[in-house]
Amino acid sequence: MENSHTDEPKNQKKLPRWVIIAAFAVLLGFLTLMGWGLRNAQQGPVQVGQKVPAFELTTFDGEKIKTDDLIGKVIVVNFWASWCKPCEQEAAELEDAWRYYKDSGEVVFLGVDYVDTETEAMRYLEKFEITYPNGPDLRTAISQIFRISGVPETYIIDKNGKLASRKIGPFVTIGEITSMIDSALNQ
C-alpha cells in the first residue's frame, strides 16, 4: 500500500491544456448543432419576401420544369397528396384558377405530390380533371426547401423569385386564390 501512495502523484499528472480545449470544443460543437437544429425547428416554412431556392420538378409525364427558367412569371406551388382529405376541398378551385390564368402566360401552376404513390396520384388528378403540371416530390427535396409542415400548403412566388404569399391548409374559395395571385402579379 505504501508503494501506491508514493506512486500516485506521478500517475496523476495535471490535466493537459489540449484536453481542456478539446472538451470545450466538443461541448460547443454539440451546442452549435443543437442550436442549429432548434433554429430549423422553430423557423417554420419559408418566409414571405425570402428568395426561394431554385428547384426542379419532374412531372408525371416525364417533363422537367426548372424554376430558374420561369423567372418573370408568377409561380404557384401547391403541395398535395392523394391520401390527404383536405386537399380534395381545394382541388377544383385550384384547377379553375389555373384555367383562368392559363392564357395570360404570366402564371405557372406546379402541383407537387408529397409522399404519394403514382397510381393513386394519377387517379386523383383524373378525378379532379387537373391539367396543370404535376409531379412527385422526389426524395422529398422540394418539400424540404419550403419546410412544409403538412399538406395542403400553397406557396406563391413572385416574378423575381421571392415568396409573395403562402397558404397553410386548403383554400376555401377561388377568390382567395385569385386575390393572392393578383397581388403577386401587380407587384
Binding site: F24, L31, M34, G35, L38
Partner: peptide, 17 residues
C-alpha cells in the same frame, strides 16, 4: 420554450464542465 431551454442547457453544461 425551445430557445430558453437551449440557453439553460448551454449554461449548465459549460458551468459544470
Amino acid at each position: 420554450i425551445g430557445p430558453m431551454f437551449f440557453i439553460f442547457i448551454g449554461l449548465s453544461f459549460i458551468i459544470s464542465l
